[in-house]
Structure formats: C-alpha cells, structure tokens
C-alpha cells in the first residue's frame, strides 16, 4: 500500500499509541488528536487519506466530529471506532445521510483495522463490523 497520511483521534492514550505505532510500522504518516476539537484543527491544517475517530470522547463525540468533517469535505474517508454496548453509536453515526464509511466495534484487532481500511480506501462502505 502507498504511504498514507492518517489522522487518529482517541481520548485513550494507550489506544492512540497502539494505532500510531501500528500505522507507522506499516509505513504511513500518523497524526494523533486527543479530542474532537484538536481533531478539527488538524483536519483543517492538512489533507488526510483516512481519519479514525473514537466514538466516546469528552466534548464532541465521534459521530459529531464526523458530521462536521463530512459537511466541509464530503469525500473525506472516515472510520468510527466504538466500545459502546448500546446501539447509540450505530444510530447516531449511521442512520443519517452524513455518515462514516465504516463503524468498527472494539476490542480492536489490528488486522481487522487494516482490512477495513483497505476496503474503505477502495470506495467500499462497511457499516457494521463485528469482527
């Protein structure tokens, strides 16, 4: 895969670190953000091939950040990660015209992340991925 520019947004330091390390290992360039506001700043500063957003964050949640980004740049490829056990993340993210390309349920698996990312970059939308 070509070298990608990736933005990872998560309030959990450990998860952020894992995704950053993984993507860098795969040879991509990674920017991290700890909440929605920082993510929007980063989004406005540069172009990302794909953005990973955690759903549960203080301030804006993943779905809200997604909607703001998609309104300003509809073609932006975006994946939401959620550890929720309710269908809240699903309904607030997917049941709308402005939605991410993919919703992944945690616990995350790096191989699953990779295969979802490849599909999304090919233009395929995957709405529910329970492994």
């Amino acid at each position: 895969m070509n070298k990608l520019n990736i933005l990872v947004v998560d309030d959990e330091e450990m998860e952020l670190e894992i995704l950053k390390n993984y993507f860098e290992k795969e040879g991509h360039s990674v920017t991290t953000a700890k909440d929605g506001n920082i993510a929007l700043d980063e989004f406005n500063k540069s172009n990302y091939d794909i953005i990973f957003l955690d759903y549960n964050m203080p301030g804006y949640n993943g779905s809200e950040v997604c909607k703001i980004i998609k309104k300003s740049k509809p073609a932006q490829k975006l994946i939401i990660l959620t550890g929720n056990f309710t269908d809240e993340a699903y309904y607030s993210s997917i049941e709308d015209e402005i939605c991410p390309e993919c919703l992944i349920y945690k616990p995350i698996d790096l191989e699953q992340i990779k295969s979802c990312m490849e599909k999304v970059l090919k233009g395929i939308k995957i709405y529910q991925t329970n492994n």
Binding site: E12, E15, G83, Y105, K106, P107, D109, L110
Partner: peptide
C-alpha cells in the same frame, strides 16, 4: 473492550 483493545493491539505489535 477498550482495555482488551490495548492488550490485543500491543500483543499484535
């Protein structure tokens, strides 16, 4: 789930 993500992720790394 979040903690397990960390266990699995680091293990895979």
């Amino acid at each position: 789930s979040n903690l397990l993500s960390c266990v699995k992720g680091n293990n895979q790394l």
